[in-house]
Write a protein that binds this DNA or RNA. Structure first.
Lengths: 332, 332
DNA sequence: CTGTTAGCGCTTTCAA
DNA sequence: TTGAAAGCGCTAACAG
């Protein structure tokens, strides 16, 4: 025997409507105390739980939020940075009584297909994207008036909900700190990819330098450990060594540190170093790397809050900046 | 205007059923070629996609699989082992056209609540659990005839779909290898928690030892790095040093290695060491740790396959053992 | 080959 | 304070 609303209604000798009214605490319908208790007791006895699918169909809400991760699977594995954001998202979704639909997709084609399925198929009420989304996808989202939020990215040409760290302020603070520590010749090692981080962080660096009458010098490299190591090694070979490096990402900080160590340059005594992101590896390098922390878990929770407001309260899309903080360790 | 099946039907001058028949490639209904093409073209033109919720309601299938992770959030973060299994699950679910509902819960109360919601609320067709499930939950699952699969665990008193590594064979192979390398006095360091691994792996060790006429000696410790390090240090202080350690988990292997190194005992020259699990850390310890690899991604994919068979083909629950392999690195 | 009918289990007016 | 009726968008049987 299936335990439906109707079943409970029959047992309680009331109408199905009354059962819903009681269980949903519908304030419009004042129900007699006795009826109420009876229904609640019966629902408990038969372990009744409303069919979410039926409810979704009539309410046109699924109470599902989808997360679509747009990078290859190997990038997802072993990356605590993503995991923290992910954990933030998950807990906030759960907290709001929603379910979390997770999709790890490899290609843009897969993504578009999957989004189509989720949005047009009414599988989710809204979507969370991480980092990059592709142009066709952008178009599809706005055509279908899909509610979504973008984590760690935004598009100037589109009204989106976005969550980003306050990159410029974080960089500014880091560089100010370096200057206070009497490092005056500071190089900025910047990622050469197209991402807000690699625009806003060097901008913060530049601002701090100029305010102090110092000359900003920015180098662009592929933002991974190995390429940065090679690049910095080149600098060292030429004898072009500053008093400090500010790198716009931690992988570049690690690459820089390794190049420095390989060349027996003492950190922080001879050269100081500050990274950005506060990924796990910065903590286990030796010396431990000073870096700008991003509130990763909060990025996740805020993303969900923003999206839910957009869905349930028709709130206008908004770009939210989260404050960073300087984590002082051993390299500066 | 909402793009429903009815809408397309009207545009094509056919009945809604015909639209479904065309789009679902229903083999029972032979549709005229022209009608077919017209419907397909119209569906494409209006970007029609069937409402999954409505479909679910009538088919009594949601095409969702839920994953419930029963450990604190901090254990999930930074754990590549889990991530690999997770990735396997995700890709296999996606591959089968299902959606992946992910739930990270903290307490047993939360879990029971969440499972209730997912199962009774018809949010998922089946559930994947990882490691431990609690007794009330077990009862609830069997009362509701929920389809589920258990990863890395099984219960002798319950018919479950389970995926586990072949722990005993893996341990046996590792110890045989040690013996072939002329280590005859081999200690087994075993985790003191209640988990199949800590029964089956020592059993494999014991079997290999006894087959070679060697005396099995098993110590139980809390299976983490620090406790193991302390325990092994104690052994070393007493001068109780074997020719090799086989630990039933990699964290214990790392703890053992560290104790050995701290006491200037050369690995593998003086003492050999083999762990179990092949977690990421074993690769970055120095020397790199020889260990028994578990096919993590495959654990995930097989779990999904098993569950889907159970759901769609009413296949009987089954316990599947996945073969391990010895990854020879520097400690043995 | 195509259309009609009857639900799936719920929420939401609106009437009693 | 309660119940009846309509309908969400789809599938599945069966009739034409």
């Amino acid at each position: 025997m299936k335990i439906t609303r109707k079943f409970i209604a029959k047992k309680a000798n009331v109408s199905p409507t009354t059962v819903s009214d009681v269980l949903n605490r519908n304030p419009n319908a004042r129900i007699g105390q006795k009826t109420k208790e009876l229904v609640i007791q019966l629902a408990k006895k038969y372990n009744y739980y409303p069919n979410t699918v039926a409810r979704s169909l009539v309410m046109k809400k699924t109470f599902n939020i989808g997360f679509i991760y747009t990078v290859p699977i190997t990038f997802f594995l072993n990356d605590p940075f993503n995991n923290s954001i992910f954990a933030g998202i998950e807990s906030e979704i759960e907290k709001n009584g929603y379910s979390f639909l997770f999709s790890l997709l490899k290609s843009d084609t897969d993504i578009n297909y999957s989004v189509r399925k989720m949005v047009l198929g009414h599988i989710v009420d809204g979507l969370i994207f991480y980092r990059r989304i592709e142009k066709n996808l952008k178009n599809m989202l706005s055509e279908n008036k899909t509610k979504f939020v973008l984590i760690d990215n935004y598009y100037p040409d589109m009204k989106t909900n976005s969550i980003l760290p306050d990159n410029e302020a974080g960089a500014y603070q880091a560089v100010q700190y370096l200057i206070r520590k009497r490092a005056l010749k500071i190089y900025c090692i910047n990622g050469n990819e197209d991402h807000p981080s690699y625009k806003e962080r060097p901008a913060g660096y530049k601002k701090a330098m100029e305010e102090n009458g110092l000359e900003p010098i920015i180098f662009s490299v592929p933002p991974d450990i190995e390429n940065t190591r090679v690049f910095i090694t080149g600098l060292i070979r030429k004898g072009d060594i500053p008093e400090a490096f500010f790198t716009t990402g931690d992988h570049m900080a690690i690459g820089t540190l390794r190049a420095l160590k390989e060349n027996r340059i003492k950190v922080p005594e001879q050269v100081k170093l500050i990274g950005f992101d506060n990924i796990y590896l910065t903590e286990i390098e030796s010396p431990r790397i000073t870096t700008v922390n991003i509130p990763k878990i909060e990025m996740g929770t805020r993303a969900v809050k923003l999206l839910l407001q957009n869905i349930n309260e028709e709130k206008e899309p908004e770009i939210v900046r989260l404050p960073t903080d300087l984590v002082i360790r051993e390299t500066a």
